[in-house]
Simulated assay, not measured.
Amino acid sequence: MSTNAQHNFAFASDNYSGVHPAIMDALISANNGHDKAYVYDSHSQALAEHIKQTFGEQAVGYPVFNGTGANVLGLSAILPRFGAVICTNHAHINNDESIAPQYVAGIKLLVIDSDDGKLDPQKIRHFIRPSEHHPQARAVYISQTTELGTCYSLDELANIRQACDEFGLYLYIDGARLSNAAAHLGCRLVDIAQFADVLSLGGTKNGMMMGECLVFLNPKLDKDILHLRKSSMQLASKMRFISAQFVAWFKQELWLSLAKHSNDMASYLYSQIKDLDGVVITQKVQSNAVFAILPPDVVTKLHDDFHFYDWNDETGEIRLMMSFDTTKEQVDELVEKIKAYL
């Protein structure tokens, strides 16, 4: 990536964005005076109520520092020591979390190839091998939305859930961009969560400064998480600063308006470049990401103007990410450069 781009905005990642003003105000408010440590503060108690209101009375939320911590901790809580996790070759736990699943939790990953980031439930049976000589699949991991920006429909989620039930597997949903999925599908968060045993609720990529929340939907899996969160170094002593962000994020469905905006910006970018000669859109635009192949010389020039990631060096595929604060004018500037360089 070139370091020449001088803009104060980027298309590299929704992690590049700042903090939404309402969430910053919540942080400032939480900083007023003293409150109890760990999760016994008033903000964490309020978050617990929001989790139940959003996901049902059986749901329990556990705020954590980050997405990798959420995934490793959540999977640790549902796997026996000999358990393995089925995921796609594009899964975040397979490509983007170093060796944290293996090193921290000793998790074996059983990988299914996918062209669009989605897991095909028909392929799950290939990993059901009861012999003690083979890793024992005990959970399925999916991302909603996927790492390629695609979104499972509710019917697709139901099919995966059915396969999990058939083979006695738990379903873990990585919801780093769960808000974007709900915005795309026009559904509630619980409509997606109903299929999961455990999910991570992502806030960092959608307006928050930091923090995710593990949500346990299957009460049978909830007995050890308090101890595991501590031993996994995901228990913040000043947890109120994570919880207060989520409380503001839930109020008046801020999460939805932010996610819808970033999705809309991706759809707008797609509409402006999809018919240009020399541009190939490689994935369905169903969230806040646009994946495309452009001529190599165009990509080189664009790197001098904007921050974004090369996704596949062999094909020339790039990823352009929109954030909650991306503006139409910023997208127009990108489009103008693409047209000029083509």
Rank of each mutant, 00 (worst) to 15 (best):
77 A>S: 08
210 M>I: 15
134 H>T: 14
136 Q>V: 11
45 Q>T: 08
25 D>P: 08
154 L>V: 08
225 I>K: 05
14 D>H: 01
138 R>F: 15
295 P>K: 07
85 V>Y: 10
309 Y>A: 03
43 H>P: 01
133 H>P: 09
50 H>V: 14
82 F>N: 13
264 D>F: 12
235 L>H: 05
100 A>M: 15
166 E>R: 13
170 Y>Q: 14
265 M>F: 11
149 G>S: 11
41 D>Q: 12
295 P>V: 03
277 D>R: 02
54 T>N: 09
304 D>N: 02
267 S>E: 14
1 M>S: 14
167 F>N: 12
135 P>I: 05
183 A>C: 08
225 I>W: 03
78 I>S: 03
180 N>E: 13
44 S>N: 12
115 D>H: 12
236 A>G: 12
201 L>M: 11
307 H>A: 14
125 R>V: 02
50 H>M: 15
217 L>T: 00
202 G>C: 12
93 I>D: 05
320 L>E: 05
120 D>W: 00
198 V>R: 13
334 L>M: 05
159 N>I: 08
131 S>R: 01
237 S>L: 10
15 N>K: 15
222 D>H: 10
199 L>N: 10
31 N>V: 07
39 V>H: 12
99 I>C: 12
299 V>F: 02
258 L>P: 00
319 R>K: 09
215 V>Y: 15
33 G>P: 07
196 A>C: 09
327 T>A: 01
148 L>P: 15
285 V>Q: 01
16 Y>A: 01
266 A>Y: 11
166 E>Q: 14
191 D>F: 01
121 P>C: 11
203 G>H: 06
142 I>S: 01
34 H>P: 02
317 E>K: 05
186 G>H: 08
297 D>F: 00
110 L>Y: 04
7 H>I: 05
204 T>H: 06
134 H>V: 14
179 S>L: 06
73 L>T: 03
278 G>K: 00
80 P>W: 05
334 L>F: 02
143 S>H: 13
98 S>E: 00
53 Q>E: 15
226 L>D: 07
135 P>A: 05
23 I>S: 07
274 K>R: 07
280 V>H: 01
223 K>F: 06
292 A>E: 00
164 C>P: 11
322 M>I: 15
303 H>E: 13
31 N>Y: 12
142 I>V: 04
222 D>Y: 07
235 L>T: 10
44 S>G: 13
275 D>F: 08
291 F>I: 03
292 A>P: 01
286 Q>A: 09
127 F>H: 08
152 Y>L: 12
293 I>C: 03
275 D>I: 02
21 P>K: 06
8 N>E: 10
43 H>Q: 08
17 S>C: 15
251 K>I: 07
106 G>I: 09
21 P>T: 06
218 N>M: 06
266 A>E: 07
19 V>Y: 02
94 N>M: 13
38 Y>S: 06
76 S>G: 04
159 N>D: 14
87 C>M: 09
176 A>G: 04
209 M>V: 04
174 D>M: 01
331 V>F: 06
214 L>E: 10
324 F>S: 15
67 G>C: 06
189 L>N: 14
36 K>A: 11
261 H>K: 10
31 N>L: 10
286 Q>W: 13
287 S>M: 05
190 V>G: 04
333 E>W: 01
302 L>T: 02
43 H>E: 08
38 Y>G: 03
